[in-house]
């Protein structure tokens, strides 16, 4: 019989974070579904709230199982995450969120090159090349989706 590895702190950290998030989710599901109406007259015991609660219950049990498993195995050890590793993806994502907020106000043809330019700068593309690529790619995406495939992109800004 193989020797069992000691509990892995990284694995535990990822699993614990996952399970805490799930406990909150399950709590919210039970809390909100408490106000759902009873519709037993349609299918006895299978009302509007039945399946959400059933799934939430299953999630709760599985979360406990994962926590228990995490204590015993280190096979699924998650990689440690440092601020250095997180900074760029967070910047990338933040820029994308800002783009979504700015899109209706600036319009696709202004907001998109700006987004692509910033994303390329984050990925260390030289500024001049980034501007050229951003403009070219915007024209390409606009051409394919709006002109070619008839997807009405929000080209005209709100302010106009």
């Amino acid at each position: 019989m193989s020797e069992r590895s000691p509990p892995n702190s990284r694995s535990n950290r990822a699993d614990v974070a996952l399970c805490v998030a799930l406990f909150v989710l399950v709590g919210v599901v039970f809390w909100i579904s408490a106000s759902f109406p009873t519709t037993d007259n349609l299918a006895k015991g299978f009302g509007v709230d039945f399946l959400p609660r059933f799934y939430a219950g299953a999630i709760l049990l599985l979360a406990f199982a994962i926590l228990w498993q995490g204590r015993r195995d280190d096979e699924d050890a998650a990689e440690g995450i440092t601020f250095r590793v997180l900074a760029r993806p967070a910047g990338f994502l933040g820029t994308m969120f800002a783009y979504v907020l700015a899109l209706p106000h600036l319009g696709f043809l202004l907001a998109t090159p700006a987004l692509l330019f910033v994303l390329m700068l984050i990925l260390r593309v030289p500024p001049l090349r980034a501007i050229t690529a951003a403009l070219g790619l915007t024209a390409g995406i606009y051409g394919i989706f709006d002109l070619g495939l008839n997807v009405p992109l929000p080209v005209i800004p709100d302010i106009l």
Binding site: F92, M96, Y99, V100, T112, L115, L116, L119, M120, L123, R124, V125, A133, A134, L137, I141, F145, V151, L153
Partner: peptide, 14 residues
């Protein structure tokens, strides 16, 4: 990849 990733991100958005 430093050119490809912004394009893929843009494709995800569009």
């Amino acid at each position: 990849k430093n050119y490809l990733l912004p394009v893929v991100a843009m494709l995800c958005l569009v």
